[in-house]
Each structure stands twice: as structure tokens, then as C-alpha cells.
């Protein structure tokens, strides 16, 4: 005798069976709207020749620009870019600490009024474009790398405050409780338990933010806030592609070096 085994059929509702069609429709409409809405300027006639000269410039960079001792050469401007990023990151890390404690949800907090308001403020800071900040600071302290430092310091608070705050929320509260139960005052709890527990994470996030700051410091110069961006935008505007080539090479090497250095340091921290 032979019995046939039928696989169990799962009863699925109409919605479960056909909801994918709705998704396809929604995504289709979004892409239809996107592609119809954008006006493609098309390729300019000069696009091919410009690309060719850019490639030619990248292959034949102006090596003499690397160092000429004038203080306006590639090496000194890259060092200046790194200085902007370094100083901006350190200042913003210091400013971020109180913001982080403001935005971190406490273990005993009930309605999240304090942490919620802190999170809103950090989101506001994060969305304020860095370029606009740089332009505002240029009005205050004049064009130059000082404005860049201020822009990086303020803008980074948005992200660092959020990351620090999340680190505080997820930290291990065990050592804090240990100090409290041994009779430590809140100041002692903070110094002996809270700070040592979160310090490695704070440092690691700061290093990570430094990597991002190096990238933004290299473009802040495009609006006049110091660093390597200023000669780059001039070189692009005057179509000096060999100079663009050497500056791009400089930025790529700088970013790669900083990224690998920071990665090594972060690996040793955690």
C-alpha cells in the first residue's frame, strides 16, 4: 500500500499573497517620478575633451608643486588641512561630552524629556550644512583656516554627541553600582567608574570622526575656509588639470594614510 505525503499548505491571506504587487507599484511610481523629474542636460560637446584632459592631467601631475618652500605648496597645505581636522575634532570632542550626557537616556529617566530634547538639538546641529557654517564663520573671523577649524568643531558635535550618547546608554553600569554600593559619592562614581568605562569608546569614536574631518577639511577650502580645497577649486576653475591631478593624488594619499593609522589605533583601543 502506498500513501502519498502532501506537503502542508500554509493558509495565506489575500494581503500576504498580493502585497508584493503593491510594493512593485509604489517603487515603480517613485522611479517614474524620479526619472521624469530630472532634466538631463546631456553631455556637453566639451565633455569628452575635458575628461581627456583631466585624465591627461592625472597622469602628468605638476610634480614641482609638491614642495617649493613657499608655504603655498602641496605639503604645507596638506599639513594645514590635517591641522584643521585635528584641532576641530579635539575641540568638538570636548564640546560633545556635555551634549552626550544631555542626550543619553538615563536608567531612571521617566518621560525622556531631557534626553529627547538633547537628541533634537543634536539632530539640528547635524543637519546644519558644514559649508554654511564655514561661510558664517568666515564672516566672523575672515577667510582662512581658523574659520575651517570653527566649522569642523561645531558641525562634528552633532555626530559625536550622538555617538557618545549612545555609548553612554549602552555602557556597562556594573562598575558604577560597585562604587555606589561601597559608599562612593556621585563625583567619585563619575571619576572612578563612568569615565574609565566609556573612555575607550569615546576615543575610538573621536578617531573615527577625525577620519571624516580630514575629508571635510579638504573641501572646506572650496568656500575659502583654508586648507587644500582653495588651490583645488582655483585649479579646476582655471582648467589647470595637471595641478588638479597632483592635488587629488595628495588628498588620496593623505586620506589613505590617516585612515590606516586611525584604524590601527582603534584596533588597539577596543
Amino acid at each position: 500500500m502506498q500513501t502519498t505525503i502532501t506537503p502542508p499548505t500554509r493558509q495565506r491571506s489575500l494581503w500576504q499573497r498580493w502585497s508584493w504587487l503593491l510594493w512593485v507599484l509604489v517603487i515603480g511610481i517613485i522611479y517614474f517620478w524620479t526619472i521624469n523629474g530630472l532634466k538631463f542636460s546631456g553631455f556637453q560637446e566639451s565633455a569628452a575633451s575635458v575628461s581627456k584632459s583631466i585624465l591627461h592631467g592625472l597622469v602628468h601631475p605638476t610634480w614641482s608643486y609638491v614642495y617649493d618652500g613657499s608655504g603655498e605648496d602641496l605639503v604645507s597645505l596638506i599639513l594645514q588641512t590635517l591641522a584643521i581636522a585635528f584641532l576641530g575634532t579635539i575641540v568638538s570632542a570636548l564640546i560633545s561630552v556635555p551634549f552626550a550626557f544631555w542626550a543619553a537616556r538615563g536608567p531612571k529617566e521617566r518621560y525622556f524629556l531631557r534626553s529627547g530634547s538633547g537628541k533634537v538639538v543634536l539632530t539640528l546641529i547635524r543637519t546644519f550644512p558644514e559649508i554654511v557654517l564655514a561661510i558664517m564663520f568666515i564672516k566672523a573671523v575672515g577667510p582662512g583656516s581658523y574659520a575651517g577649524v570653527l566649522a569642523v568643531s561645531v558641525h562634528s558635535v552633532g555626530m559625536l554627541g550622538k555617538l557618545f550618547g549612545e555609548a553612554i546608554e549602552n555602557m556597562d553600569r556594573g562598575s558604577e553600582e560597585a562604587i555606589t554600593s561601597a559608599g562612593g559619592r556621585s563625583g567619585q562614581v563619575f571619576v572612578l567608574a563612568t569615565v574609565p568605562t566609556i573612555m575607550p569608546e569615546f576615543l575610538s569614536y573621536t578617531l573615527y570622526r577625525f577620519e571624516i574631518a580630514v575629508r571635510s577639511a579638504s573641501i572646506l577650502g572650496m568656500v575659502g575656509a583654508g586648507g587644500i580645497g582653495t588651490p583645488l577649486i582655483f585649479a579646476i576653475q582655471t582648467r589647470d588639470w595637471s595641478k588638479v591631478g597632483i592635488i587629488l593624488l595628495g588628498i588620496v594619499v593623505m586620506v589613505l594614510l590617516i585612515d590606516s593609522l586611525s584604524e590601527q589605533l582603534r584596533k588597539r583601543l577596543i
Binding site: 542636460s41 583631466i54 573641501i219 572650496m222 583645488l232 585612515d259
Partner: peptide, 20 residues
């Protein structure tokens, strides 16, 4: 390694001003 605004500056030079 290339920041977004830097790419934008170069592609504006290639494609001209506009959303492309």
C-alpha cells in the same frame, strides 16, 4: 577617499552646471 564635494566640482567641469 574622495569627498563628495570634490567629486561634484570635477563633474560640474565635465558635464556642465545641472543635475547630471
Amino acid at each position: 577617499t574622495l569627498p563628495d564635494l570634490l567629486l561634484a566640482a570635477i563633474f560640474v567641469a565635465i558635464f556642465g552646471i545641472g543635475s547630471t
